[in-house]
Amino acid sequence: MNWLSDYFDIRRTDAIWTVLLLAMTLGLPLFISNNYYLNVLVLVFLYAGMASAWNILGGMAGQFSLGHTAFFGTGAYTSTLLYNYLGVSPWLGLIAGGIVSMFFAVIIAYPAFRMRGVFFAMATLAFGEAIRILLIYSRKFVDMPYGLSINWEPGFSRMIFEERSSYAFLTGGFLLIVTLVAYGLSRSYIGTYLRAIRDSEEAAVAAGVPMRRYKMIALLISAFFTSAGGTILAQYVLYIEPTSVFSINYSIDLPLMSLIGGIGTVAGPILGAVIALPLRDVLLELFGGAAAGMHLVIYGVLLMVIVIILPDGLIGGVKSLLRRLQRGQTSGNRTTDKRGRK
């Protein structure tokens, strides 16, 4: 245990978060029996896990990718193709998809890591789109139907379950693992290195941080878990096609959730998913009747407002609120807390 506290910055409040997270991932599936709510739960867990994965690269290391759909779709396709054509268990397919995704990650890293900020975003966005188009194009040469269905044959080794609550446990477990990894990275020297790279590449390198190596570590981990999310979703909906699993929406939703919750923090992406997904459902419920798409108009407007008002997300907002309250009590303390903007 001593070893742990030597290498990881463990804080007392972490216990509260751990209990909350465990209660959510392992407890809620036990108590919810309504299929509609279970479906929401599965998706929230899945998106929370993938948003956390995105956040390792985009938030902690500050390389905001808009191309994660490439990894998501690769995960979904690899495991499904392996399962449908070769009968390989999706559990192995998940690993295989992760490896293929990491391979793609290495390819895109070469050009993309030479760019910063919004240019990195544009390059990764183009990458995500290119993969989808190439996949559709490849059907000219290989005999593959446009969409792939997975036969509904429940079985643990086939990662297909009869009960929806089993999927909630599966995605909950996925979320737990990603969160554990994100937490471990964040609280070890690697997290400090990634934040240093995000804040100032020059200073990080001058302080001896091998920048490319750590950006690459963040990218590979991020790609692997996003890909795993793709496999799990494929096993949940049992049908995939290029435009659905390589949809640009994944590339946008994952960073969006991180941003809403609090980018760069471990809890942020989870909080963001917990808020954003049900929000969309609620809006659909309220405005869906008016006209198709109406709820997304409001969703888009709300996003703008949230992003402008809370640039550091809910966690950042709450923190600065607490700080302001504290300062109100101990008036006269004039320490500035404004975050330095690059």
């Binding site: 400090t192 804040d199 100032s200 020059e202 975050r339 690059k342």
Partner: peptide, 27 residues
């Protein structure tokens, strides 16, 4: 000065210290 804008003074110095030891305690 290139400061790490989201960090505390201590963490910024630790970025340098991690070069010689990965242990947070030592750093």
């Amino acid at each position: 000065p290139q400061v790490f804008g989201s960090m505390t003074v201590g963490d910024s110095i630790m970025v340098g210290a991690f070069l010689r030891s990965r242990s947070r305690r030592v750093a």
